[in-house]
Design a protein around this nucleic acid. Structure first.
Length: 664
DNA sequence: ATAGGGTTAG
């Protein structure tokens, strides 16, 4: 579409064509074309004297900013004799879009001195307030907000919304809410600003309350922005809130990409990976074209439910749309493949990458680590250093965890100590947890305990949990009880710890402590996370719970499982009653063990696939010793590879041998 | 010719 004639009175046809070209320059790769068009415009119009000059310059500033060439955009502004507020507004927009908020605020501050033609207006203030919010600049934000009031601009919705957002993000959520309540007229963005404001202030409950109030009002209607605004409040959300948001989502008439992407992210952030995958499938059925954000959101969920064929289809989509230049997607692909046990494919993605960042390296290092291939992880870490890529805090978590999974005690320790000595990266509680794990699994229980005692930060539940797990493996009850008591005192949120605690105490006959565990769980309202296994078949993910009989093929699955258990008993399987991590009544133990969700999922895949097809299962807990043993023997008698991803690592089982070396 | 809320990895 041509720009309005009135703004470009004396522009020849060639000028219009050039302006269209300028408008189409929206990415750094278009910069050459933009410079060329700029040069030809200069020649054609003999800028700056041409009557259309101002409007052309505004377009040039906009285009340079969109191409991330901010100095060039600035140069156009500086060289304009006829500059006015709008020039500054456009450049400000470019700076805020590039997150250059300090530069934006400096530019804003310079406007006043340029004279009345360049005074900030109702377009300028929202941008300036946004930069205050992003830089936590409450004082400046207050000053700017009071300027808008002096100029009578505070009734402008754009100004009001950016002020609400600024207050909420600068630690004044109550002031934000007061402004919101005092507004004469509110549109949907007013509500969205308040919802996201509370979210960014960490007040998730208040964000949800405002969200529910908006929905109850029926007017204005929630939109894509509403979905995106509630998203950050929905980490570990209550299931009724998620269901509620889903209903709102279903009611949104014209769902754009952001609406879909936000709903996908809500599922993905709440461990509802099957729902995320199903929503993605529905999205495709409805003919909505996914973008890079969609795919980066759904790929981790594919990994979490072993949806390898969907993951591969997404990979094909990425290739066919030439999205592969996006590092974000390549990194997500590596993780998806690794979670599905496809180390080779993960490595192929890594090797094919033109540019790699620390996230890419960390992804491939942790892929090897999760597979128990510590040596390869170390080689890659060293290669990363050799190529001049600086490791960061998370890269060290990955390499120390890799050493831990492979039992490489000394190397792991060396990496831990090199963090502070070589890289000035202070270890976080994550690193300490990995170290306790590393020491504990290697059998250095008392060293691990001393390590915790000397930690400069307060050990959390994961640290004590790692020690307790190690004590269980190595049957060190003295330190085990110390760890257990500390863990119990922290009233951990992860339910798996209660099972671990309960078992430890029960094994020692400390029944009083067993009932304390139960009462702590009850008083904190902690419900056991039910064990769930997932397996993909065709274009669906099938889910199994412990003792599940709801699957249509349930009868066949149990028959198959009975047959399998019979066959593996013949080659030495004996249910490890004591090793169960699921707490069940004593007399029911052996019966219960046979129906752990991972066993059901294995039987299900065996029934429905051709001989030799690998069996990919994911489990949302740590696999228990009994299922691990059974899976190894099943892999032998059925001649199948079993790839079991649990919360901690990947068990790649071939002919009765697991990649974890029975050490997990 | 310009402005508000908002989605993506280790």
């Amino acid at each position: 579409m041509d720009p309005p004639r009135s703004l470009f009175p004396a522009l020849p046809p060639a000028g219009h064509a050039l302006l269209r070209l300028v408008d189409s320059c929206r990415a750094p790769t278009h910069l050459r074309a933009l410079r060329a068009a700029h040069a030809r415009l200069l020649f054609l119009l003999r800028l700056p004297s041409h009557p259309a000059s101002a409007a052309v310059r505004v377009k040039l500033i906009q285009a340079y900013a969109a191409c991330a060439a901010l100095p060039a955009a600035r140069a156009v502004l500086d060289s304009s004799p006829d500059r006015s507020t709008i020039f500054f507004n456009v450049l400000l927009r470019g700076l805020t879009a590039a997150s250059l908020h300090r530069d934006a605020l400096l530019l804003f501050a310079s406007m006043q001195a340029q004279g009345p033609a360049c005074f900030p207006d109702h377009y300028t203030y929202p941008l300036a307030l946004k930069s205050c919010a992003a830089t936590n600049g409450l004082i400046l934000g207050l000053q700017i907000h009071s300027s808008t009031a002096r100029l009578g601009l505070d009734g402008n919705l754009f100004v009001a919304h950016s002020a609400i957002s600024m207050y909420a993000r600068c630690g004044r959520p109550d002031d934000a809410y007061q402004m919101f309540e005092e507004m004469q007229y509110r549109d949907v963005v007013s509500w969205n600003a308040m919802i996201s404001g509370f979210a960014h202030a960490g007040l998730f409950g208040r964000a949800m309350a405002v969200y529910r109030e908006l929905v109850a009002l029926q007017c204005p209607r929630p939109d894509a922005g509403t979905m995106a605004s509630i998203l950050p409040s929905m980490e570990n959300a209550r299931i009724e809130d998620i269901t509620f948001v889903r209903e709102v989502f279903d009611d949104i008439q014209f769902k754009g990409l952001i609406t879909w992407n936000a709903m996908l992210a809500i599922y993905a952030n709440n461990e509802m990976h099957v729902e995320a995958v199903e929503l993605f499938m529905r999205m495709q059925k409805d003919g909505i074209e996914p973008d890079a954000v969609t795919l980066a959101t759904v790929l981790p969920s594919c990994g979490e439910v072993s949806a390898l064929s969907l993951g591969k289809r997404i990979h094909e989509t990425i290739k066919s749309k030439r999205m592969c230049s996006s590092m974000l997607l390549e990194n997500a692909l590596m993780d998806m493949y690794a979670s599905c046990g496809c180390l080779k494919e993960a490595r192929e993605v890594f090797d094919s990458m033109g540019v790699r960042d620390v996230v890419s390296w960390t992804s491939i290092i942790s892929a090897y680590g999760r597979h128990g291939l510590g040596r390869e992880a170390i080689d890659l870490f060293e290669k990363m250093l050799g190529q001049g890529q600086e490791p960061d805090s998370i890269a060290f978590v990955a390499i120390i965890a890799a050493c831990s999974h492979a039992g490489l005690l000394d190397v792991g320790k060396r990496y831990f100590y090199s963090m502070t000595s070589g890289y000035h990266i202070p270890p976080t509680v994550e690193h300490y947890t990995c170290m306790v794990d590393l020491l504990g699994r290697a059998g250095c229980i008392s060293e691990a305990y001393d390590f915790i005692m000397m930690m400069p930060i307060k050990p959390n539940e994961r640290v004590w949990g790692a020690l307790l797990g190690a004590c269980r493996i190595h049957s060190n009850m003295d330190i085990g009880f110390l760890a257990a008591d500390n863990l119990l005192r922290l009233a951990p949120k992860q339910t798996g710890y209660y099972v671990l605690l309960s078992n430890i105490y029960a094994r020692a006959g400390r029944w009083a402590d067993v009932s304390t565990v139960r009462s702590v769980m009850e008083s904190k309202g902690i419900k056991k996370l039910p064990g769930v296994s997932n397996a993909e078949l065709g274009d669906r993910v099938h889910t199994f719970h412990i003792g599940d009989t709801s699957h249509p093929q349930s009868k066949m699955i149990y028959e198959k499982l009975g047959e399998l258990l019979q066959r593996i008993r013949e080659i030495g399987y004996n249910p490890e009653v004591e090793a169960t991590l699921h707490d069940v009544e004593e007399e029911d133990r052996e019966g219960h063990l046979s129906v752990h969700s991972e066993k059901l999922a294995i039987a299900f895949v065996l029934i429905n696939t051709k001989p030799g097809t690998p069996i990919r299962i994911t489990l949302n807990l740590r696999t228990c010793g009994d299922c691990h043993h059974a899976a190894k023997l099943i892999s032998t008698v059925t001649n199948r590879e079993i790839i079991l991803k649990d919360v901690n690592r990947i068990h790649y089982i071939v002919q009765g041998v697991c990649s974890c070396g029975d050490y997990w």
